[in-house]
């Protein structure tokens, strides 16, 4: 168990979530290795996003366990999952619409001044705030949003909102980040840049990624290990090459 724990940051055991008669996630066992990019692919409606929702506490699972960093976090509320070091992005961006780009990132980083007693006294949180602003600009610069820092989120375009999603998640310094279709709707060259940047972070940060994508052409080369889901179940797993040549995978993507 201890070597398992050291090797995997996230492990699900028979994780199951049903909506009425539809079993969206059906006894899913997935392991995310530390400091690696694990990819979860599958067609629309395969249950990928539901899987992320159940892991991060947005939805409660019906069955099964979520083990994160050696701890059973099954059914924890999202803010506790965050504190444990696990965050996720949203496939359909969920920005804080009236806050600036910078404030969106600062909210994600958090500050002790979020307690109202400290909040009322500026010198109790201002130093932390300045450090956070520095952190935020490093990330915003990398995703190309630094010059838009004072724009309110509702004025951003769709592609920029996608980048803001990534920026918020990266800025938290979490141990595991689930990226839910981070490049959906962006052009291939841009998508490549972003994935290269994210992948590069594995070398300099102590972080792991769970990348959820269905654009396999762009994303697959970046993955270290791949799971394929279809209709709520994991139907294949392996190294990217193996999975790409797996007849079951070809079948669901290209058709019989």
């Amino acid at each position: 168990m201890s070597s398992e724990r050291r090797r995997y940051i996230l492990e699900t055991k028979d994780l199951t979530k049903a909506f009425g008669g539809l079993v969206a996630v059906n006894h899913v066992n997935i392991k995310v290795e530390r400091n690696k990019m694990t990819m979860l692919m599958g067609p629309n409606g395969a249950g990928k996003t539901t899987f992320v929702n159940v892991c991060t506490g947005v939805l409660k699972p019906d069955e099964g366990e979520v083990i994160f960093d050696g701890r059973d976090i099954t059914g924890w509320p999202p803010h506790d999952v965050y504190k444990a070091g696990f965050v996720r992005t949203f496939q359909v961006p969920e920005p804080f619409l009236k806050l600036t780009v910078l404030d969106n990132v600062l909210v994600a980083i958090g500050n002790k001044g979020e307690n109202p007693f400290r909040g009322a006294i500026k010198w109790l949180w201002i130093r932390e705030e300045k450090e956070n602003i520095e952190k935020a600009f490093k990330i915003l610069d990398a995703v190309g949003l630094a010059d838009l820092w004072d724009r309110q989120a509702f004025t951003l375009g769709a592609g920029q909102l996608k980048m803001l999603e990534i920026a918020r998640a990266l800025a938290t310094g979490a141990k595991l980040i689930a990226l839910d279709e981070p490049i959906g709707g962006t052009d291939p060259a841009y998508a490549n840049d972003i994935l290269s940047y994210v992948k590069g972070l594995l070398k300099i940060w102590d972080v792991s990624f769970l990348l959820i994508e269905h654009r396999i052409d762009i994303a697959l080369p970046f993955a270290d290990y791949v799971y394929v889901m279809d209709r709520g179940k994991v139907i294949a797993e392996g190294l990217p090459d193996e999975v790409a040549n797996n007849p079951k995978v070809i079948e669901i993507y290209i058709g019989e």
Binding site: T56, G57, V58, P77, P78, H79, V81, Y82, K83, V87, R88, F90, E94, P95, F96, L97, K98, L99, D103, N104, L106, V107, A108, G110, N111, K112, G113, E114, N115, P116, R118, G119, A120, K122, W125, E129, R168, T172
Partner: peptide, 29 residues
């Protein structure tokens, strides 16, 4: 006004704008 300009006020606005994102980013709603 000082509360509103503090991280506390910002967290309140974040919760108002998207409850689910605020929770995922560590805010106890």
């Amino acid at each position: 006004e000082s509360l509103g300009r503090s991280p506390f006020g910002r967290a309140l606005k974040a919760m108002r704008d998207s409850e689910v994102a605020a929770e995922v980013y560590g805010k106890n709603i």
